[in-house]
Design a protein around this nucleic acid. Structure first.
Length: 293
DNA sequence: AAGGTCGCCAACCGCTTCCTT
DNA sequence: AAAGGAAGCGGTTGGCGACCT
């Protein structure tokens, strides 16, 4: 037996709210408040609506401090940063944006911001691949981590021939990525725009690995390189920040395979230098590679 | 001008969390 | 501690307007 419905659906009005209903709900709430019970509220306010519907209408539309539309670049950045940190917890994200509702933020992300971000990231990825293909293998180019969202006025789409790698799984926590150490590091680590790898989980949150020494914790992620095909789906990279200045990564197919791709990626995008020999932590396995930053 | 498509957003649905008894 | 119910939340849907052909 399922759960009892919150109201009698045959006796409640659904669909768009009329100005009269808005007025009735607003004036009731301004005079009496919710009374701590949304379920009983519609009847008291003379509305043939479900309590949940009243609550939603008030929270998302009628509240006096609500802002609609016109998201600023600053708000865009906050949303993107928080989305990368905590995912689709819209109510948490909305608390950082005064006057915005979780529904508003969610709609804005789904209809505009997501596409904007993906386009910018595709553009960046395109730039990386084109620059790396035209430079030697020993390039030391460091890519500046600028704001991807507003970096390009009209980001170019990725060429059709571009093979975009796909994240298979990710194992990390935002605390691991973003929590500063307790030993005098800045209050917050600069959040890097994440790198898009495919369509399913479009962010590649290496943010925590960029920043001052002392960043605490580890950041593990798994991705497959674009060199892979479906038959080598097991190939992945695991990366962890294992000391102040080094991060270890190892790919499943070892040296000479996708290692080359990841080394190129880390170098081009983050300016990481592969580090071997003196100064590098002891290598636990042959496939381990160390990068320094 | 008409029909089709797309994008936006308000509202709904159902699951989870929290609170009260 | 368990159960029941309300609130909170995120995913999804449907209607409407704008734009395109």
């Amino acid at each position: 037996m399922g759960r009892a419905p919150c109201c009698d659906k045959t006796n409640v009005k659904r669909g768009p709210w009329s100005p009269e209903e808005d007025m009735a709900l607003k004036s009731y709430l301004e005079r009496h408040g919710t009374g701590g019970n949304w379920i009983a509220l519609p009847q008291k306010a003379g509305l043939k609506r479900c309590g949940k519907s009243c609550r939603l209408r008030w929270l998302n539309y009628l509240r006096p401090d609500i802002k609609h539309g016109g998201f600023t670049e600053e708000e865009d950045n906050i949303i993107c940063t928080l989305y990368n940190k905590i995912g689709s917890r819209w109510s948490v994200i909305a608390t950082q944006l005064p006057g915005r509702t979780d529904n508003d933020v969610k709609n804005y992300w789904n209809t505009k911001l997501k596409k904007k971000m993906m386009a910018a990231q595709a553009s960046l990825y395109s730039n990386i691949t084109s620059s790396s293909s035209s430079s030697s293998a020993t390039t030391t180019t460091t890519t500046t981590n600028t704001n991807l969202i507003h970096q390009t006025a009209s980001p170019a789409p990725a060429p059709a021939s571009l093979i975009i790698p796909t994240i298979k799984t990710e194992t990390y926590t935002c605390d691991d990525f973003l929590a500063p150490s307790n030993e005098g590091s800045p209050a917050s680590v600069p959040v890097n725009p994440s790198f898009m790898f495919g369509h399913k989980t479009p962010f590649f949150p290496l943010a925590g690995l960029v920043g001052p020494p002392g960043l605490k914790g580890s950041a593990n992620l798994h991705a497959v390189s674009p060199h892979d095909d479906a038959s080598t789906a097991s190939s992945s990279v695991t990366m962890e920040n294992s000391s102040n200045n080094y991060a270890k990564y190892c790919s499943a197919d070892g040296p000479g395979g996708d290692d080359a791709f990841f080394a190129e990626f880390f170098n081009d995008y983050y300016g990481y230098q592969e580090k071997t020999g003196e100064g590098a932590p002891n290598q636990a396995a042959l496939a381990d590679k160390w990068i320094t930053f």
